[in-house]
Design a protein around this nucleic acid. Structure first.
Lengths: 157, 157
DNA sequence: ATCATTTTGTTTCCTAGTCAACAAAAATGA
DNA sequence: TCATTTTTGTTGACTAGGAAACAAAATGAT
């Protein structure tokens, strides 16, 4: 196997394992709230004036999917929507108190997971970190460019 | 943001973008076959005596899901099943000619994607590669151990 | 200003995958 | 040996998410 694929498979493997491993605790602590819902809460908490479109782009999901998730979050009163006077089309979200609380629980859980994996990250040198992060950034930017290329290639048809 | 999360988010971001970017060509070349089906074909092609359980473990999916996928692959005559005389329970799979052909197309497509991303990987030094791969391996092993821990912790109940 | 195009969000229909329950075979243990 | 437990694969009910079609608002072009 060549290194390119080894890297990608390695990434995928790690993420799969993390999801698998975190799932039980996630479900226990965030009873009733799906992980996609919690992810949306996290994003809305961090980004002012979040809307369906921005959420969708960030998660590489369809607006359709996000629209359904935010609908649920609204019904559960974890977020509330608002609009701006100058735009009657876009609908923004912000967290409610209750949404903030869920976010906090989620944060704490992540702290716990970080603690669990600490011994791995302790063994990583600064240079190794920088090496990994610079690769990630470079690859990510390249993919952005390729995605943009593809979009203009598809649109005109 | 701390580096741990930056790394994980970076990995996730890259994989999301790759999936998003590859999807159109995948669907075009492998018309009618879903990506999960093709992944199973790939695994079956590479691993002798694949069965539902091994596929499920490798992909971190349920046996249920894999069972449905292999059922479809059988119906499409892309794989065939066989058993061993000493075991009447386990059902193994191998590729048919047609399955091999699909696999080939998939392989070529990956070559194309690798070509597309070549300029990124060309800029990566050997040391950087080794740095990344050793981190991936270390983290992966740690997660394996944690998963095993969790399994024994859950089982007795 | 007006008409065409694009953007945004929603809904309906459909499919992929999970969960839970199950049956059959295999492994374990007394 | 025979009974219990575990493993393996399958199914049915359910849910999350994608595709397509849509309406309403915004943007752009002339």
């Amino acid at each position: 196997m060549n290194k390119e694929e080894q890297v990608i498979l390695g990434f995928r493997d790690i993420l799969n394992k993390i999801v698998w491993l975190n799932k039980p605790k996630m479900e226990e602590s965030l009873k009733g709230h799906k992980s996609s819902e919690v992810h949306c809460l996290e994003f809305i908490g961090k980004n002012a004036d979040s809307n369906v479109t921005k959420l969708a782009e960030s998660f590489f999901m369809t607006r359709s999917a996000i629209s359904k998730i935010t609908k649920k979050l609204l019904e559960k009163d974890l977020i509330e929507s608002y609009q701006k006077p100058e735009n009657k089309k876009e609908i923004y979200f912000r967290l409610t108190e209750e949404g903030l609380a869920i976010n906090k629980i989620h944060d704490d859980l992540h702290k716990e997971f970080r603690e669990r994996d600490k011994k791995v990250f302790e063994q990583v040198t600064e240079e190794q970190f920088d090496s990994i992060l610079s690769f990630v950034e470079m690859y990510s930017k390249h993919l952005d460019a390729e995605i943009k290329k593809q979009e203009v290639a598809i649109k005109p048809e």
